[in-house]
Design a protein around this nucleic acid. Structure first.
Length: 567
RNA sequence: CGGGAUGUGGCGCAGUUUGGUUAGCGCGCAGCGUUCGGGACGCUGAGGCCCCGGGUUCAAAUCCCGGCAUCCCGACCA
C-alpha cells in the first residue's frame, strides 16, 4: 500500500477524550475514530489489525474442531424472555423495535439463539458433541464506556458454544477451548494468565478468565509464585486457618466507646490494632439477617458471601435497612447478636487470641471475646478479600496481586440454557436429557487495546508481527541530489519485489520531509522499517530497523529482498 | 444513577470572570518559493450554526433558564 493514497491522517496531539495510552495511540495512528461514546469507525490500518486478530482466533478455533457460523445481531426479545435474561441484562441491552412493534435485542451475546438453533437440528447423542462459534459485533449499553476499545458499547467478540451429552464431554470441550485460547493470546503477543473467575450474568459453574497483564486493567487478580493458582480477586481465597487453642483470657468486658462505629477509632481508643478487632457485617439474605465475621483489618468479599448463600439473594445492609431495624446497632454489632439468623466467620478468626467486637449495644464494644466461650459462628468459610502476601490456598506460598484486561472467558455452563430453550437429546437407551453446554468468549477488538498497552514506546505502537497491519514499512528518502531519481527507482523496485513475494508492505512514497516519515513510521509501528536513501544507496545498502527493539543494520541492496522475506 | 468537568474551523487550545470593533493561536489543509536522513522555514490563502433551544440586552462565544453530548471519579459490569 502506498501511503500517498492510504486513507490515513496521523495526529501529533493526543486526543482530548483519551485517557489511556492504547486509546491515544489508536487515535493518533489513525486506526479508529470515535463516532459516539463507546462506538468507533475502523479505518484501514485498524481494520487490518482487527482482521489479523480475528484470523488468528479463527485458525485456532478451527484447529480445535469448532465450526464457524454467523448468528444474528438483531435477536427477538422473546428469546431473551424465555431464558430469563431480558431482566437480567436490563439496561445493559440495546433494544430496538420494528415497524410492527416487535422488540429485538441487539446481541450482547448469543446463548439463546445458538441454543435454539442446535435444539432445532440435533436430538440424538450420536450428533454430539458439537461446538459452534462466530466472530461478530456485540452490543452492550455500558453505564460508562471508557478507555477506547477496552470498554466499548459496540465491540467485536468471538463467541463459541459447545454442546455435549454429559459432564465428561463438557470437560473435554472446555479443555480444548482452554488450549485454543492459550494459543490465541500467545500468538497475539500478550502476556496473560488464566485465572479462576466468577461467572457473572452468564451463569454456570466452572469458569476461567484470561487476563492480559496490564497496569490499567479493570480487574485485579491474585496469583501464586510457586504453583499455578491464579484467581480473579472476586473468586480468590487464601489458605484456611486451622483450629487453634486460645490461651486463657480474662472474662468478656464491655467498654464504653461513644460515637466510634469505625474500626480505627475503636482500636485507637482501646490501645490496640485493627487486626485484633472483629467486624460483624450485616447482610440481608432473602430477608434474613446474616452476620459475616472478618478481622477488622480485612474487607468482606461479597462474591464469596453470595456463593456461600446461593441460591438465596445476598445484599449488604443499607442505611435504610438499619433505619427499619433500630434494634440492630450499626457499628456496634457483635458475633453473638441474638437477632442474626446465621453467622458466617472467616477462618482467620480462629487466631489464638481474644477479640474486640461490637457489644450489640450502641456506643459499646466488648473485649476479651473468645471463640467457643463467648461466641460460636454457624459456619466457617473463606470470606475476606485476598490481599498480596496472603497464603496460597493450594501451596501456602505468598500470593501476589496484579491487574489485567479480560481478553477471554471460558465457562462450563451446564444445562441452564438447554433446559430453558429445549435443547435436549435422546441417549442410547431412549431417555431424554438436556445437552450440557459450555460457552467461550474472546474480546477480539479489546485484544488490540491490550496488545498496544503491552507493545508501545514513546514513539508509538510496536506491533507484534502476527497482527501488524503491514509487515514492512518501506521509507524512501530521495533527497535532492543528482541520484534522487535513482533512489526513488530503487525503492519502487523493492516495493514491487516485496509485493511480488506477497509481503504486506506499506510504502511511504509521500513527498514530505524525512522527519515526518520517520516519526510516522514509529507511530504506526510496523515490525520492520526499511529506509532507502541517497547516502546508503551510494554505498549499495538500505537500512533496516526493528521497530520493537530499535536495532538497526544495513542490507546490501542486492540481498535485501531475500533478507526481508526470510529466504 | 450520585459527584466533578468540558463543549469555540479536521485536531489541540486561548478568549467567557468584568457582554462591545473583523473570534485568536499552534498543528493540519491549499498555493508559491527555499529546504531535504528524525515531526524544516517564509509568504499567501481557505476553512467557524462559538453544542442546541429559549430568554435578558442597543449589543451575547461571554449573562440567565432548559436540553443534549463528551470525558473523569464512584456505583455497576461478559
Amino acid at each position: 500500500m502506498r501511503m500517498s493514497s492510504l486513507f490515513l491522517r496521523t495526529l501529533r496531539d493526543d486526543p482530548a477524550d483519551a485517557e489511556v495510552t492504547s486509546h491515544k495511540l489508536m487515535v493518533r495512528a489513525g486506526l479508529i475514530r470515535r463516532v459516539a461514546s463507546g462506538i468507533y469507525s475502523w479505518l484501514p490500518l485498524g481494520n487490518r489489525a482487527l482482521r489479523n486478530v480475528a484470523q488468528i482466533v479463527r485458525e485456532e478455533m478451527d484447529d480445535a474442531g469448532a465450526q464457524e457460523v454467523t448468528l444474528p445481531i438483531a435477536q427477538p426479545l422473546d428469546l431473551w424472555k424465555q431464558s430469563g435474561r431480558d431482566d437480567a441484562y436490563g439496561q445493559m441491552m440495546f433494544r430496538v423495535k420494528d415497524r410492527k412493534d416487535n422488540w429485538y435485542a441487539m446481541a450482547p451475546t448469543a446463548e439463546e439463539v445458538v441454543t435454539t438453533l442446535v435444539a432445532g437440528e440435533y436430538s440424538s447423542y450420536r450428533d454430539l458433541p458439537v461446538n459452534l462459534y462466530q466472530i461478530n459485533w456485540k452490543y452492550r449499553d455500558e453505564l460508562r464506556p471508557r478507555f477506547g476499545l477496552l470498554r466499548a458499547r459496540e465491540f467485536l467478540m468471538k463467541d463459541a458454544y459447545s454442546f455435549d451429552a454429559d459432564l465428561a464431554g463438557l470437560q473435554a470441550s472446555y479443555d480444548l477451548m482452554f488450549h485454543a485460547y492459550s494459543q490465541v493470546f500467545s500468538r497475539c503477543g500478550l502476556t496473560f494468565r488464566a485465572v479462576k473467575a466468577q461467572s457473572g450474568e452468564i451463569g454456570g459453574d466452572t469458569s476461567q478468565e484470561f487476563m492480559a497483564v496490564a497496569a490499567i486493567g479493570e480487574d485485579a487478580f491474585v496469583w501464586c509464585e510457586q504453583c499455578d493458582y491464579a484467581a480473579n480477586t472476586e473468586a480468590a481465597t487464601r489458605r484456611p486457618t486451622p483450629e487453634q487453642v486460645v490461651p486463657d483470657q480474662p472474662p468478656r468486658e464491655v467498654v464504653h466507646t461513644p460515637a466510634m462505629p469505625g474500626i480505627d477509632a475503636v482500636a485507637d481508643h482501646l490501645g490496640t490494632t485493627p487486626d485484633l478487632l472483629m467486624k460483624s457485617i450485616a447482610f440481608d439474605v432473602d430477608g434474613e439477617l446474616v452476620l459475616v465475621l472478618v478481622p477488622g483489618d480485612r474487607e468482606v468479599n461479597e462474591y464469596a458471601v453470595a456463593g456461600i448463600c446461593a441460591p438465596a439473594k445476598v445484599r449488604l445492609y443499607t442505611d435504610a435497612d438499619f433505619d427499619g431495624h433500630p434494634e440492630i446497632p450499626k457499628g456496634y454489632i457483635g458475633p453473638d447478636f441474638a437477632g442474626a439468623a446465621r453467622t458466617l466467620a472467616d477462618s482467620s478468626l480462629r487466631a489464638p487470641h481474644a477479640w474486640v467486637t461490637g457489644a450489640n449495644e450502641a456506643d459499646h464494644h466488648a473485649r476479651n471475646m473468645v471463640l467457643g466461650r463467648d461466641f460460636t459462628p454457624t459456619a466457617w468459610n473463606e470470606i475476606v478479600q485476598v490481599e498480596a502476601g496472603d497464603k496460597c490456598s493450594s501451596c501456602g506460598s505468598p500470593l501476589r496481586i496484579d491487574r489485567g484486561i479480560e481478553v477471554g472467558h471460558v465457562f462450563q455452563l451446564g444445562d441452564k440454557y438447554s433446559r430453558a430453550l429445549g435443547a435436549v437429546y435422546t441417549d442410547d437407551a431412549g431417555a431424554e436429557h438436556p445437552m450440557v453446554m459450555g460457552c467461550y468468549g474472546i474480546g477480539v477488538s479489546r485484544i488490540l487495546s491490550a496488545v498496544i498497552e503491552e507493545h508501545h514506546d514513546d514513539g508509538g505502537i510496536c506491533w507484534p508481527a502476527a497482527i501488524a497491519p503491514y509487515q514492512v514499512h518501506l521509507v524512501v528518502i530521495p533527497g535532492r541530489g543528482d541520484n534522487s531519481a535513482e533512489v526513488s527507482a530503487a525503492a519502487e523496485q523493492l516495493y514491487s519485489d516485496l509485493r511480488a513475494r506477497e509481503i504486506d508492505v506499506l510504502f511511504d512514497d509521500r513527498d514530505v520531509s524525512p522527519g515526518v516519515k520517520f516519526a510516522d513510521a514509529d507511530l504506526l509501528g510496523m515490525p520492520v522499517q526499511v529506509t532507502i536513501g541517497a547516502k546508503g544507496l551510494a554505498r549499495g545498502v538500505v537500512e533496516r530497523k526493528i521497530r520493537a527493539t530499535g536495532d538497526r543494520d544495513e542490507l546490501a541492496l542486492d540481498v535485501a529482498l531475500d533478507a526481508l522475506t526470510g529466504h
